[in-house]
Amino acid sequence: MKEYDGLVRIELTLNGEKRTAHVSPADTLLRALRENLGMTGTKLGCENGDCGACTLLVDGKPVKSCYTLAVDVDDKTITTIEGLVNTDVQQAFIEEYGFQCGYCTPGVILNAYALLEETFEPNPEETRTWMESNLCRCTGYEGIEKSVKRAAELKKRAER
């Protein structure tokens, strides 16, 4: 049985690197990443699990970090937006104008990335089901939808 009380040391694989952090059980993963580990790409929005700005990947699955306890991911693999570099998804979002202010974008991109890792060519319903986890106040979602579609095309082309 493992007990976490007071300030505790957790170990995780963050964007491919082994990292440690000292956190309290009361710290959410969102706060721990931004305030202890310097990963400010993950954004703080509603802190209620609604907006998706805090989305990142835990063991490859999109999860909202605002309701995830930092101690809960001790020994897990985390991917934040800082861990995605020159991916097809990011290229597609540039090509298709999938963002405006950019605040929701890290969460949107990570969710889209996870979708395309799981499903080779998602149909519109699958795309909608995944992407409705992220709210955007700027784009009206059409740019995001087109970007995900374009990302799937780029990925398909790259894997041929």
């Binding site: 049985m1 493992k2 007990e3 976490y4 009380d5 059980p25 009361a26």
Partner: peptide
């Protein structure tokens, strides 16, 4: 973050979980 302190326990069996409770 949660605005109060608490202890987080990760049991390895149902018996440990019930004992912790």
């Amino acid at each position: 973050m949660i605005p109060f302190d608490f202890t987080y326990i990760r049991p390895q069996s149902s018996e440990e979980a019930v004992t912790a409770y």
